[in-house]
């Protein structure tokens, strides 16, 4: 589904990713872990198409399409969705309005018509209940005045409504207390399905107690230096990152 090959990325002439390889199949949950500054967030930002990242080498294919040739919105409509570490506030724009515009944009790209209003309302109510969000959140301006936990739940709500093929969640656990994390994890787990993949970018193992990954990758200094199953995450938790680094240098 997603194939990242020999990806080199620079930000303001500084090399961040230096030959990253990653393959994700439908149905899989991958966790990208690593120390601060290793390039974890860069990976998901580049896949989503954020400005300021220059790909100097390598390729990203999503279902056979060259992602780097696609506009930001085309990537999203194709089913590549990024959940933000720091969701953005948009004053005056209702949350529900953004959701509807995003959903209809994706439907239009698939050649479907706009979603009928009653169907949309039903869908959104159902999904917000799943995220334990009061319906009043839908009428508030996007992320404006939301607490950290509310913003993260809102990101997952968008995923539940938009049903991406590949959900990339950037540090979705940062700033969450344990209860909020459980709600977020429950939402993410409900996204799991045989035809959908999830890419979790996280610093801590904690999240992976709630969302069990199929594959864990350790990203250090712009490369994936070690991959394994969920037990790797536990090992990282116990021993830190230094040993992986030493092993990879050796």
């Amino acid at each position: 589904m997603l194939e990242v090959k020999d990806l080199h990325v620079t930000v303001e002439d500084k090399a961040i990713l230096k030959g990253l390889n990653l393959t994700v199949q439908p149905g899989e949950v991958h966790a990208i872990m690593g120390p601060n500054g290793a390039g974890k967030s860069t990976l998901s930002a580049v896949i989503a198409g954020k400005d300021g990242y220059e790909v100097t080498q390598g390729s990203i294919l999503f279902e056979g399409q060259d992602v780097l040739e696609m506009e930001i919105e085309e990537r999203a409509r194709a089913g590549l969705l990024l959940g933000f570490q720091y969701p953005i506030e948009i004053p005056g724009v209702k949350n529900i309005y953004l959701l509807k515009a995003a959903l209809n944009a994706a439907r239009e790209a698939r050649g479907e018509g706009e979603i009928p209003a009653p169907e949309f309302m039903k869908l959104v109510r159902e999904k917000s209940a799943e995220m334990q969000m009061d319906p009043s959140f839908l009428q508030r301006a996007v992320n404006e005045g939301f607490s950290g936990g509310e913003k993260k739940r809102n990101e997952i709500l968008q995923m539940l409504v938009l049903q991406p093929k590949l959900a990339m969640l950037d540090e979705i656990d940062s700033g969450l207390d344990i209860d909020a994390m459980k709600v977020v994890a429950k939402g993410v787990n409900s996204l799991r399905s045989a035809d959908r993949a999830i890419l979790l970018v996280t610093h801590y193992q904690r999240l992976l107690n709630h969302i069990e990954p199929d594959r864990v990758h350790v990203l250090v200094d712009g490369r994936i230096v070690k991959s394994g199953d969920k037990s790797l995450a536990l090992e990282l938790e116990a021993r830190g990152y230094d040993w992986v680094l030493e092993e990879s240098v050796a």
């Binding site: 919105e73 990537r75 990024l82 953005i88 948009i90 953004l98 515009a101 995003a102 301006a141 938009l162």
Partner: peptide, 20 residues
């Protein structure tokens, strides 16, 4: 970027933000 990363094209995103 936030709006576009949700699949909303650039002009619609601008008008959405400005109207807000």
């Amino acid at each position: 970027f936030y709006c576009r990363a949700r699949g909303i094209d650039e002009e619609d995103a601008v008008s959405m933000i400005v109207n807000g």
